[in-house]
């Protein structure tokens, strides 16, 4: 397999960026800061492009201009679809109300948009949470304790789940003081939660390490001859730069450890 010059350039870029970010593991330093600012700048630019090309232009400006064109009697290359109508003025107006925040005097108008978003979100949430969270979790909880296909072990587990659900719910009661029997039950609830959180933590380790392994595997690959030892050379360069910058900053201001 031959490596093209473009791939080599891309590998060097990737190694440089990767090591800049990893330098944060040592401590905050100008190279991490450089990487961080580049990353923020690029993603902000990407975000603007995405908002314009994927949302504002195709979903608002283009359909709305077609609507106006058809009202003015111009011929369209294809007929208006059923969601191309004047209702699109509503998000336009609500969006413009948000932009009134640029003016200190009219800024309060953005509250109309806030109210619209919050009201809608609240309304959608109520039935959705009952159906998606409560009902979906309720159905598998209501298991028979005994029956012909149910072993003693399954009965014990069903009971343990029931006890767990009830005691965790008791822990969350806000109007009951945690003392006496309530305290004991709530503590059982905490035990359940701790086991659950510990298990989830332990389980996630593998997923997270697999990403680190993926990154390291790439670095190892880029350390090879095909890529002109990119990882090794850049590691030395970046480590050297950090050491150099640290020495310089110690000389110029000995007592101050903040980099601004």
């Amino acid at each position: 397999m031959t490596v093209t010059p473009m791939q080599i350039l891309e590998a060097w870029l990737a190694v440089g960026f990767t090591l800049m970010i990893y330098s944060f593991l040592y401590k905050d330093n100008p190279l991490f800061k450089l990487g961080e600012y580049m990353y923020v700048g690029l993603t902000a630019g990407w975000g603007v492009c995405s908002a314009w090309f994927n949302v504002v232009w195709p979903d608002l400006i283009e359909p709305l201009s077609r609507v106006f064109k058809s009202y003015l009697g111009a011929t369209l290359d294809k007929p208006l679809s059923h969601n191309e109508n004047l209702l699109l003025l509503i998000p336009l107006i609500l969006g413009i109300l948000m932009l009134t925040r640029f003016s200190p005097k009219l800024g309060w108008l953005s509250r109309y948009t806030f109210a619209f978003i919050l009201g809608t979100a609240s309304g959608i949430a109520i039935p959705l949470t009952v159906s998606a969270n409560l009902f979906k979790q309720m159905e598998p909880t209501l298991k028979p304790l005994f029956g012909k296909d149910i072993s003693a072990w399954m009965t014990v587990n069903t009971l343990l789940i029931l006890i767990g659900v009830v005691s965790v719910l008791i822990y969350f009661f806000f109007s009951l003081e945690h003392k006496g029997i309530i305290k004991k039950v709530a503590r059982i609830g905490i035990f359940y939660m701790m086991v659950s959180f510990g298990a989830a933590f332990g389980y996630t380790v593998m997923a997270r390490e697999s990403l680190a392994i993926g990154r390291m595997t790439k670095l190892v690959k880029w350390a090879g001859q095909d890529y002109y030892y990119a990882s090794i050379i850049l590691l030395v360069v970046i480590a050297g730069l950090i050491a150099l910058l640290e020495m310089l900053s110690k000389k110029s201001k000995p007592a101050d450890d903040s980099t601004g």
Partner: peptide, 30 residues
């Protein structure tokens, strides 16, 4: 066993709680 018993129980109860919190909070906004 940990995933199918204690973990399931704790998660379900937390979901029930979140359901109630969501309803109450939404109503407070509405």
């Amino acid at each position: 066993w940990i995933f199918s018993v204690p973990n399931t129980a704790a998660k379900r109860a937390i979901w029930f709680g979140i359901t109630m919190g969501t309803i109450a909070f939404s109503l407070r906004i509405i």
